[in-house]
């Protein structure tokens, strides 16, 4: 009875996911990477359901057939050491499944870690997305603008997010565009995304980062390249420039609304990559890596010759 119940729950769960898949963010992809991931998820749910059903079926069969109350009084269970054939099957079948999944995982890993196939060859939009307690700063170095807590992106163009953090480890996640990746203080990670269609989306920090974590989300809007260009022009005409002083204020712990600036923080507070990477940071860390660079270079030279 319990197993039937368990089966019911499983079916209920699958049915519900099927019905509600339009609304479930991860299964409602708006970009090629999220599409790849949703495909993997569906594929694995499918194969895994079969395994669950098989296990439950055997369990129900055994429980129905060999329960104490159903058996003759004099039935004495035999001693069974094992069975080579059966044991081979229960080894081989999982191995085949795992082998299949291994191939899938290698292919898809390489897909999500590269520029999406459909947009290969295009010039990607590079966005430096950095987190501070508890905000997101988006720097568009080519456009030379910066936003806080909202992200405008062009559709049908590869996006390359350079992620790092001014504080604890955070995780940059836009479920409908693709999976997340960590932003850390001592190195830059790269996340390849792209949007197939225009629309509004939710993005957030997925990795716990302290008191303000729950509200550490941002607004994402995908728009056509023309609209995006218009927006950039408009920002350049209207927004204030981002000064170092202003940026230091922004970094203070707390929440901010959506802000827009011309210029980025990258010139005076560069991302931890190349010569600014973690192991070269001095006392001030990534916050203001302005002094002592010369010394760092010397050390880097020393260590790299070893």
């Amino acid at each position: 009875m319990k197993t039937k119940w368990a089966l019911f729950v499983v079916h209920f769960l699958i049915a519900f996911v099927l019905i509600g898949c339009d609304k479930i963010a991860v299964l409602d992809p708006k970009g090629p990477q999220a599409q790849t991931q949703a495909n993997v998820i569906w594929l694995s749910i499918g194969i895994m359901s079969v395994i669950v059903v098989v296990v439950c079926a055997i369990l129900v069969f055994v429980l129905v057939k060999y329960r104490d109350s159903k058996l003759p009084k004099d039935y004495e269970p035999p001693y069974i050491e094992g069975n080579r054939v059966v044991e081979t099957i229960i080894v081989i079948v999982p191995i085949l499944i795992v082998a299949f999944f291994s191939v899938v995982t290698i292919i898809t890993n390489n897909k999500v870690e590269a520029t999406p196939q459909a947009y290969k060859g295009q010039d990607p939009l590079i966005v430096y997305a950095s987190s501070s307690n508890w905000k997101w700063h988006f720097s568009y170095p080519e456009e030379n603008i910066e936003t806080v807590n909202y992200l405008y992106i062009p559709t049908n163009r590869p996006l390359e997010f350079k992620l790092y953090s001014f504080g604890p480890i955070t995780s940059f996640w836009i479920p409908q565009l693709g999976g997340q990746k960590y932003a850390m203080s001592d190195m830059v990670t790269t996340l390849h995304l792209a949007a197939d269609e225009a629309g509004e989306m939710m993005g957030r920090n997925a990795n716990f980062s302290g008191v303000g974590f729950a509200e550490n989300s941002f607004y994402v809007e995908a728009m056509s390249q023309d609209d995006f260009d218009d927006w950039v022009t408009e920002v350049k005409e209207t927004a204030e420039p981002l000064t170092e002083e202003k940026f230091q204020q922004l970094l203070k712990p707390g929440h901010l609304g959506q802000l827009t600036f011309t210029g980025t923080h990258l010139p005076f507070s560069p991302a931890p990559e190349g010569e600014h990477a973690g192991h070269n940071h001095g006392k001030d860390g990534p916050k203001a890596d302005t002094n002592g660079n010369q010394e760092h270079d010397v050390h880097e030279h020393d260590t790299s010759t070893s």
Binding site: K2, V10, V52, C56, K111, Q180, F208
Partner: peptide, 29 residues
């Protein structure tokens, strides 16, 4: 008896999580 089906569900979702491309979506959720 309850362990067997429930743990199987837990185990297969573990395999789902193990596929790292999809894990980008499951992680931290």
């Amino acid at each position: 008896l309850a362990f067997i089906p429930l743990f199987t569900i837990g185990g297969v979702t573990g395999v789902m999580l193990a596929m790292s491309a999809a894990d980008y979506q499951y992680h931290n959720t």
